[in-house]
Amino acid sequence: MAKTQATAAGAWTDEEVLECVSILPESPNVVTVCFQAPSGRPFVFQAGQFITLELPVPGGPLYRTFTISSSPTRPKSLTITMKAQSTSIGVRWIIDNLRPGMTLKATGPAGRFTSAEYPAQKYLFISAGSGITPMMSMTTEIYDLGRHRDVVFVNCARRPSEIIFKRRLEHMATRVEGLDLKWVVQEPDPYSPWTGYQGTFNQLMLGLMAPDYLEREVFCCGPEGFMQSVREALAGLGFDMDHYHQESFHAPGTPGPELIEVELPDDDLPEDDVMAEIVFDISGVTQSCPETETVLAVARNAGIAIASGCTFGVCGTCKTKKLSGEVHMVHNGGITDEEIEEGYILACCSNPRGKVTLDL
């Protein structure tokens, strides 16, 4: 049991095994396993925390960590929801071998990726794939407690049929105010029209889904590349990253994988107190500016006209040739990888790093 987690009298502790009582298929290669304590003791944890299972795979025990997908408001059982990847060993063993009545050793619950650590009236939950599990736990707790909370719940998946917990969340949204569900898929299912968001989650979608994102406590969970894109989108829009929290996996030496809330990686984002310089080569103008200024804003302040449209990195109108130097660019599809390799940037969403020379 985590040292920061006080164990209630009579509650389950990890000195007792977990008994599998049911296995529920959720979506392709995704199952939810429900556990109970053989003693009947209730589970005490915080929504968003994790537990580590000891799996008796051939060749020795394997330790795998899973976020708890159930809510502490339903303490008589504990569920974990997992997706089998092509390289999965532990999850594949669970799907192929675990059956009701079997028991497993476990350690936990633990972890600080929980809304209990960061209470707020407004939340923004952003997840991809099985990263939805801690968001499900936190949302179910908010739903069960009955107190009004404003939650924008964003989940990204490859197809609508692969959105985990979709029906359960939609049912909750019909029974309580304040739960706003937003689904983003890469492509629709065959022969099934899709009217929601489609593509890759970006700043434009964020602005449409939660116009007041600056006022929200943000929780993010998913693959590292996905979380990095979310961090960059928020930082590029001026979000206070002290109110951003993410869940990440890492594998220390022993006893096995552990789930922690990590310090935010250094994404080398533009900073207010770091100065840059833009040289407009054709115009013969050099302008100093903070890194947080966009190339478009600096050009306008210098009296240099750059055609622009959306100012959101979508339309591509402000595409400009960079002759030298580096920029930090977070675009929303208005430029291709080939154009970037050729040296083009979108002035509206590019921040200069050091000295930058433009063909203007």
Rank of each mutant, 00 (worst) to 15 (best):
A2C: 10
K3C: 02
T4Y: 04
Q5V: 11
A8S: 12
A11E: 13
D14I: 08
E16F: 15
P25W: 07
E26A: 05
P28M: 03
V31Q: 03
V31P: 01
V33H: 11
Q36P: 06
A37C: 14
S39N: 14
S39Q: 15
P42M: 03
F45S: 06
F45Q: 03
Q49A: 01
T52Y: 04
E54S: 13
T67G: 01
P72E: 00
P72Y: 01
T73Y: 06
R74G: 00
T81C: 03
K83I: 07
S86R: 05
S88K: 00
I89M: 07
I95T: 04
G101S: 05
M102I: 09
T103K: 15
L104M: 02
T107S: 09
A110E: 00
F113Q: 00
P119R: 00
P119T: 06
A128P: 06
A128M: 08
G129C: 00
S130M: 02
P134Y: 01
M138V: 04
T140V: 02
T140Y: 04
E141N: 05
G146W: 10
R149S: 05
R149E: 11
V154C: 13
N155D: 07
R159K: 07
I163G: 05
K166W: 00
H171S: 11
A173Q: 07
V176G: 01
V176K: 01
E177H: 08
L179W: 05
D180W: 00
K182R: 05
Q186G: 13
Q186I: 00
Y197C: 09
Q198N: 12
N202K: 15
N202Y: 13
L206S: 14
M209G: 15
R216T: 14
F219Y: 11
C221M: 05
A233V: 10
G236Y: 12
F239Q: 02
Y244V: 09
H250C: 05
G253Y: 11
T254P: 11
G256N: 08
G256T: 10
V262G: 03
L264R: 01
L269A: 13
P270N: 10
E277V: 08
F280G: 04
D281N: 07
T286I: 14
Q287P: 06
C289Q: 07
C289G: 06
L296G: 10
V298T: 15
A302D: 13
A305C: 02
I306V: 08
A307Y: 09
A307F: 03
F312T: 10
F312Y: 03
V314G: 06
T317G: 05
K322H: 03
K322A: 00
L323Y: 08
G325Y: 09
H331Y: 02
H331L: 04
N332P: 12
D337L: 11
E339M: 12
L346E: 04
A347G: 02
C349M: 13
K355D: 15
L358M: 09
L360I: 09
